[in-house]
Nucleic acid binder design. Structure first.
Lengths: 351, 351
DNA sequence: AGGTACTGTGGGAGCGCTCCCACCAGTGAT
DNA sequence: ATCACTGGTGGGAGCGCTCCCACAGTACCT
């Protein structure tokens, strides 16, 4: 830390004007240096930087926000109660990626929970006041009014997990289609013939895409379509159990199951064990998410990993671009508004 | 939501001035209404509120911050890596209490991690810019420079878990002394005669206080002091194991152990089981924190519960008071700057 | 009647910045 | 020599509030 001795006589924090006086330049020039404008000579820049260091100058955020009409802050909005936020590693991974990508920036991240009605109301107020330059939206339900509110308020926003193929907001997603394909292709490659699929909630776009991947992989391998091999779950363990039972009734000879989530795979595993099917000898099992459950299952579960940390990074990249684009009334294209990141199949003993 | 139809012609957000014009009053009056000043007649107030609703007026935070020199935001600073934050229920409980107490307020909460050097540097910058009105400090190590920085910058702050009896910052703590006492008194009341204590890290003030409570409870019950019954752990499971071994060597006849944390109690339990002592028949065991470990231990562990959620609330109360006090150059007393909340002994099968 | 004390109100000044226009060199083309 | 330009700079205007002083009106004393 530089010496903070030479403060203004007022005893308060030094202002731009004081720095300018000290450096023997004008206010505008100091502003340019602070904001990294290239149109400043090297000598002047050095003088200003020296003055800044000597006075321990730190820009006043409020004044900057007022004059420039921006806040240098973005919000990560979690439309869930805090408890779920802490329970699920998804969020902490996401936060890690977001934080990492943001640490090169002046931007500040706000974490906002909007689980209860009360919190949602506060959030609406908050957004109406434009207290952030942009919003990151995670884990949004299909019928949530939040995205529309953001569009209406013209606040740049990026959503993780688009709500449909026609998502209006800029979005980041993992390749659910490819993830589904890779799971099935892996099972086919290891010699499985009858592969069932327990889907997630089909009102979740990502779950649909996994089904698409499942279907196409089988079709491309020359299997004829059999819709009876597909049974919807609801992302819960109980849903996994139920679906597995149904599938076993319909197809007693199935030798592989691809579950749309690790949790459902855990449910399926219970049923398989109860009826005496060995994993992977009799039935191979593949999950989705590569969560802690997958690693700790007995046997360890093959699963499709989503690059959540990277998704967080990508969300920030897109959001910052969107904010920057909006600053000048630019002619914004619709190009690359939807990022899709590759998944990775993590093979373990269950398949 | 009110109709947002009648915006200013500019298309932007309405300003105080526009609301004033609409209500047929002056700017100052609107400001007074917005800020809940009592010196406004009822009729005027109603007119202004109507205008606010019609225009959908929302105050501009930046302008307010600039003019009033405050931010209406406080930070919860966690000097730990994010991973620990998510792992320990302590933080989420604390956050719950803080959030609850803050929801009646206009204040906004920022969550700031300062685990890495880089993050700490950003934080220092952040605080120097006075971007928050106050700071909540949790889980601070004894040699952390952060508290001093806050004092130097004259930023109101409240610390949870004072660093010593002479803590300079306003603090909130649970009654570690009373917690220690209650554990020992409980063991005495249930007929135990030789009660050992595994302490936490003794550079942690709270751990010392628990030892004090342990000592005084025994002394008051007429036991003569025996320092050999006290063995330091370090809050880890391994430390608990080691201390338990030492204690068993020194006092093979001990019939009770009070551990300074549930984690250490878990370590102690392992050793007791290995040497064939039954819990609670041969040795009674009491832990501290009432964590998930305590509930799931076999047998379930008697433990001292700290009112963490309430501590969060208390921190906010004290911090808001401190911020309010500072606003006018008040003659601030030093009264009640250290809140101590009662603990509660949760008796389970281990004692 | 004049004074004194309120209550309620209007609006100027100013918070510390960014934006932008004006301006002053220099530089090279005409 | 004149006329563009261009890189570099100073400083006015203004962002939307809060603070505070001034002042009108009313009420209650002498």
């Amino acid at each position: 830390m530089a010496s903070h001795g030479a403060r203004g006589r007022s005893g308060g924090r030094p202002t731009l004007e004081e720095v300018a006086a000290r450096a023997g330049v004008g206010r505008g020039t100091v502003s340019r240096v602070i904001n990294g404008s290239p149109r400043v000579s090297d000598a002047t820049r050095a003088a200003v930087e020296a003055a800044v260091a000597e006075l321990g100058y730190v820009p006043n955020t409020a004044a900057r926000a007022l004059a420039a009409n921006r806040t240098d802050a973005i919000a990560l909005v979690v439309p869930e109660p805090e408890t779920r936020f802490f329970a699920e590693p998804y969020f902490s991974d996401m936060l890690r990626g977001v934080g990492a990508e943001l640490s090169d920036t002046e931007m500040q991240l706000l974490l906002i929970f909007a689980g209860s009605d009360r919190e949602r109301q506060r959030l609406a107020q908050y957004l109406a006041a434009h207290r952030v330059d942009g919003v990151l939206l995670v884990s949004v339900h299909a019928d949530d009014p939040l995205p529309d509110l953001l569009v209406q308020l013209e606040i740049p926003a990026v959503i993780s997990g688009p709500r449909s193929a026609a998502e209006t907001l800029t979005s980041v997603d993992s390749d659910n289609y490819g993830g589904g394909r890779s799971a099935v292709e892996h099972l086919l490659a290891s010699g499985r013939r009858t592969i069932a699929h327990i889907t997630g909630r089909l009102d979740v776009y990502g779950a649909q895409r996994r089904v698409d991947g499942y279907r196409d992989a089988l079709r491309d391998a020359g299997h004829k379509a059999d819709e009876l091999l597909i049974e919807p779950g609801d992302f819960t363990e109980e849903g996994g159990r139920r679906a597995m039972s149904v599938l076993l009734d319909r197809h007693p000879t199935l030798d592989a199951v691809f579950a749309g989530s690790d949790v459902m795979a855990a449910g399926a595993r219970q049923v398989l064990r109860e009826v005496g099917r060995r994993i992977p000898d009799d039935v191979a099992l593949v999950g989705y998410d590569d969560s802690a459950i997958a690693r700790h299952m007995d046997p360890p579960l093959t699963s499709v990993r989503q690059p959540i940390v990277e998704m967080g990074r990508a969300m920030i990249d897109l959001l910052l671009a969107e904010i920057a684009d909006r600053r000048p009334a630019a002619s914004r294209g619709l190009e690359r508004r939807h990022a899709v990141l590759p998944t990775e199949l993590v093979v373990r003993a269950s398949s």
